[in-house]
Write a protein that binds this DNA or RNA. Structure first.
Lengths: 217, 217
DNA sequence: ACATGTGAACTGCTTCACAGCG
DNA sequence: CGCTGTGAAGCAGTTCACATGT
């Protein structure tokens, strides 16, 4: 197998694997910046908090990227990982909910860097509509469906209050968007052909208090 | 086994289990608000996107909370889950980094509701020090160690640029704080007696683009 | 000699299926 | 009779260990 031919994954790839690929890519980009030319699975593992076997297994699902006895070429592996993760192209993103979380996301630098372009923000609050969120126009949520047909964004970020999250997700689904990053602290139910990732601070905090309570001092 | 005697978990509890307990609790609180008195594992499973066997197994690690043939008492199970998750008491939280993410967290309502009290925010930017973040005093990071000795917060939220995250984590560790919620998009290395949960938007987004690229249309 | 790539073994989470009890 | 609680089975993800290629 060859590193040029990016074999599409044969079996379903575990979430945990994809997350680790993100981590590896971040280190590779750091190494690229420092001009390093090769890296071993051992080195990637050490920095990523995993094992070298895990690194090699993760990569093996997509092809053969290293040279035996040598390791991986930093620029080549970076390129491959970007391609695998779908970062080899631009993505249009809409933010729904122009509150604090929307603002934090809109100004996040790593965002544009990685090819994510925020095309619009939406809100239903008349006081916010027409204003801007970190330079991005805040539009009336009533326009949402019509706009999606024109702009065809691929990703929607949900930063709305939890009470409205499911209803908004349903609208997003009907509009044909297949990927959602949800910040509302609720479990959402989506059609099978949609991917929803939820970032739930409340849940993470409860993971902490559980640890403090049960394995703590 | 009895629902009153909250048996401390015998074996290590999986992260995935703890996260589901959070989800169950959220539904139970909703049911409590609506005055429902009992709920079945089936009902909890349906709403939480899992199976009834999973719900029962998750709960079984901590005791026996249901009545056979009947289901679970909503208020009793709520109370037990709050206790298991460590929400039966207050927690002092410090936010490090008074940027947009810090602000979003500081204003998040579910926060205080669940017993998290933000005692202070810290920054090293002279322009921010002395100001407030959603009503919370922004202190000079130089004071951090001294303040921790006085206030003894249990949880630190890291909302600093990724370049500084590891250094700040090391300071937090040395100051004796054992639980950290990290928003910097980097893998952090912490002592074994510390719990670190990382919320990484970049990683979640890459999970979406991976899905769009590899299983998409 | 060295580090990759990968079947095989292992570990642990999830699902099954049913005994137990209200 | 219904729904919980739980060993046992099944499955998925991780780790091992070594053959392979440079």
């Amino acid at each position: 197998m060859n590193s040029q031919a990016l074999s599409p994954p044969v079996k379903r790839i575990a979430d945990s694997t994809v997350r680790r690929l993100s981590i590896y890519l971040r280190f590779l980009e750091e190494f690229e910046g420092r001009g390093l030319s090769t890296v071993s699975s051992e080195e990637l593992a050490r920095r990523g908090g995993t094992t070298s076997a895990q690194v090699r297994k993760d990569l093996s699902f997509f092809g053969s990227f290293g040279k035996r006895g040598l390791g991986y070429s930093v620029p080549e592996l970076s390129t491959s990982l970007r391609e695998i993760l779908g970062l080899g192209r631009g993505w249009r993103v809409v933010i729904i909910g122009a509150g604090k979380i929307g603002a934090a996301l809109a100004q996040y630098r790593g965002f544009r860097q990685r090819g994510f372009q925020i095309v619009a923000a939406y809100d239903s609050n008349a006081e916010k509509i027409g204003g801007t969120l970190e330079g991005i126009e805040i539009r009336d949520m009533h326009r949402f469906e019509a706009d999606v047909e024109k702009d065809h964004p691929e990703i929607a970020v949900l930063a709305v209050p939890m009470e409205h999250a499911q209803a908004v997700l349903d609208r997003v689904a009907r509009a044909g968007i297949k990927a959602v990053l949800n910040f509302a602290p609720v479990q959402l139910h989506a059609p099978a052909d949609m991917t929803v990732k939820t970032v739930n601070m409340a849940m993470e905090l409860e993971g902490l208090t559980f640890a403090l309570t049960n394995q703590g001092v």
